[in-house]
């Protein structure tokens, strides 16, 4: 598992070869409690709007993202640069990462998963990193995140379009306690597995990218409303605010 001092040579090799790292207790104690409270509070507060958007065909009923979370509670900002994993993001992005956003997501129990196996971006895209943080305990068979190690590398695959998610060759599943974070290269094939428990999966997906002028230009407007919290040079840089 990962430590507090940044990537060791072995961790860097795992990242480069396999495309993922796991951080147990990446968020814990008071911060985790704050996060869980804010998550549940805003999930309830925004739910009726979400149900309305489902009826209008504007949102899917199979996953629920709380909108505009960065404006709702600073804990949703604070988790973007938690040292336990953020120092790895900086290391892998050449100290030049920029945040794209976050998805504060509950996946209701359903008959299958809300998504199939997929990469997010092709390897021609600037380095794209996601950190999946579990907000509640996610058991095996509880809709856990899964990844195909090595699938992020140029020339990997092709990977079959399996209808049964469990049939994807070579995949690895990541059950975990609340506060566990799984960092992965978004070039790689990943999915939320089926949830055979009675507990919806709560997680937050933090999204980062290697800085490019286009992303910086987008972020100038995207994060203007949370300027009060972007109060250090490091955060200015992370959020791409000049």
């Amino acid at each position: 598992m990962t430590g507090d001092s940044g990537p060791t040579p072995a961790e860097r090799k795992q990242w480069e070869d396999l495309g993922y790292l796991v951080f147990e207790e990446a968020i814990s104690g008071d911060v985790l409690a704050r996060l869980q409270h804010a998550f549940d509070y805003w999930a309830e507060a925004c739910k009726e709007e979400w149900l309305g958007r489902i009826a209008k065909g504007e949102a899917a009923a199979t996953y629920y993202d709380i909108p505009n979370t960065l404006e709702k509670d600073d804990v949703f900002i604070d988790i973007l640069d938690r040292p336990k994993y953020y120092r790895y993001i900086k290391a892998f992005a050449g100290d030049d990462a920029i945040v794209i956003g976050e998805q504060v997501r509950t996946a209701p129990v359903w008959t299958t998963s809300y998504t199939g196996w997929h990469p997010d971006v092709p390897p021609s895209h600037p380095l794209h990193i996601k950190v999946q943080v579990y907000v509640n305990d996610v058991e095996p068979g509880g809709g856990e995140f899964a990844f195909v190690p090595g699938s992020h590398r140029p020339g990997a695959g092709p990977y079959p379009r399996v209808k049964n998610l469990a049939a994807m060759p070579g995949h690895k599943r990541f059950a975990g306690k609340a506060g566990t974070a799984i960092m992965f290269n978004s070039y790689g094939w990943h999915v939320a597995m089926e949830n055979h428990t009675e507990t919806p999966r709560k997680s937050i997906i933090l999204i980062y990218e290697k800085r490019t002028p286009d992303r910086v230009a987008e972020n100038e407007n995207r994060f203007a409303s949370i300027s009060h919290a972007l109060n250090t040079p490091e955060r200015h840089r992370l959020f791409g605010i000049s």
Partner: peptide, 19 residues
């Protein structure tokens, strides 16, 4: 004429019935 969201929610509902 049916106005569809730019990111089609069907990808996460009916299209998942391909399983």
């Amino acid at each position: 004429q049916i106005d569809i969201a730019s990111y089609n929610p069907a990808f996460h509902t009916t299209h998942r019935l391909s399983t």
